[in-house]
Amino acid sequence: MKRALLRIEKSLGLLTGLSGVLSGLGMVLMILLVFGNMAARYLFGTGAVWLQELELYLLAFTVMTGFAYAMRHDDHVRIDVFSNFLNRTGKLWLDTFTMLVVAIPISVLILHYAWPYMAVSYARGEGSPNAGGMPWLFLPKAMILVGFALVLTEALRQALAGGRRLIFHYRRPRRNQEPAREA
């Protein structure tokens, strides 16, 4: 059972690691596209609306795939009002509790409400309101689903890791205690 949970934890970690790579690639593409659009506009006096809107599509991709990666490396915004007063074990309890009570339920809730939002956009064939703009307006809306599915994945991974660490913490003998000897 322990090995299976560790394997699940590692698999979820690989998925969120991949999301970081994809987010980085999206950022590089977005930087190149913004530079290309700027050069086309100011050097050549030309440009395309759909290329400018593609920047927004790439921004949605980059941000939504980067959330889980930021969570994984603890680079997200958090309020440390409570955790500053806690020791290492208390912080571990707080992080695990936060994943179970806040991150996982909110991710599930957002996935529940984002699905019809994206599905309606797809069914209607929504496109850009601008002339010459991008079609498939459902794609940035679908990134909400992808992003929060990745956040859910990382929250599950952190909850499993936190539970494993807590079990390990309470099972090991204390430093200044001798293990119980059998007589």
Results as ranks from 00 to 15, higher is better:
5 L>W: 14
179 P>V: 14
128 S>H: 04
30 M>P: 01
178 E>V: 05
16 T>S: 13
32 L>F: 01
97 F>T: 12
51 L>G: 01
116 P>T: 08
14 L>T: 12
28 V>E: 04
55 E>M: 04
51 L>W: 03
22 L>K: 07
88 R>M: 04
38 M>L: 13
182 E>N: 10
180 A>R: 11
130 N>V: 11
96 T>S: 02
39 A>S: 11
134 M>L: 12
56 L>M: 14
42 Y>I: 08
71 M>L: 13
123 A>I: 04
111 L>P: 05
60 A>T: 05
156 L>Y: 12
5 L>Q: 14
104 I>V: 13
179 P>K: 15
149 A>W: 10
14 L>C: 13
150 L>E: 04
48 A>Q: 12
57 Y>M: 03
57 Y>T: 01
124 R>D: 09
54 L>F: 00
92 L>W: 06
60 A>W: 14
47 G>C: 05
116 P>V: 03
177 Q>E: 14
61 F>G: 01
9 E>A: 11
69 Y>R: 14
168 F>C: 11
108 V>L: 15
149 A>S: 13
128 S>P: 00
168 F>W: 12
144 I>K: 14
127 G>M: 03
182 E>V: 14
57 Y>Q: 06
164 R>H: 12
54 L>P: 00
137 L>Y: 12
58 L>S: 02
81 V>E: 05
162 G>L: 10
170 Y>T: 03
26 G>S: 10
90 G>S: 06
162 G>C: 09
76 H>C: 01
107 S>R: 07
78 R>P: 00
155 A>S: 12
98 T>P: 04
149 A>E: 03
111 L>A: 03
71 M>E: 06
70 A>H: 02
131 A>S: 09
72 R>Y: 00
13 G>P: 03
5 L>M: 13
17 G>W: 14
67 F>H: 08
158 Q>D: 07
118 M>W: 15
102 V>I: 06
77 V>E: 00
159 A>L: 08
178 E>D: 13
169 H>K: 14
136 W>H: 14
135 P>E: 06
41 R>D: 02
162 G>V: 05
165 R>S: 07
169 H>Y: 05
91 K>V: 09
28 V>H: 05
54 L>V: 02
155 A>M: 05
81 V>H: 09
152 L>V: 10
74 D>W: 06
150 L>T: 02
34 V>I: 09
164 R>W: 10
42 Y>D: 08
138 F>S: 08
92 L>R: 13
115 W>P: 04
94 L>K: 15
90 G>F: 01
98 T>F: 06
9 E>Q: 15
147 G>E: 04
180 A>M: 09
42 Y>S: 13
159 A>Q: 07
11 S>C: 09
111 L>T: 00
173 P>H: 15
98 T>W: 05
168 F>H: 15
25 L>F: 10
75 D>M: 14
181 R>W: 09
6 L>A: 12
150 L>S: 07
129 P>C: 04
49 V>E: 01
42 Y>A: 09
37 N>P: 00
21 V>Q: 13
157 R>I: 02
12 L>Q: 05
94 L>Q: 15
54 L>D: 01
42 Y>P: 05
175 R>F: 08
132 G>M: 07
117 Y>V: 02
59 L>W: 06
17 G>R: 15
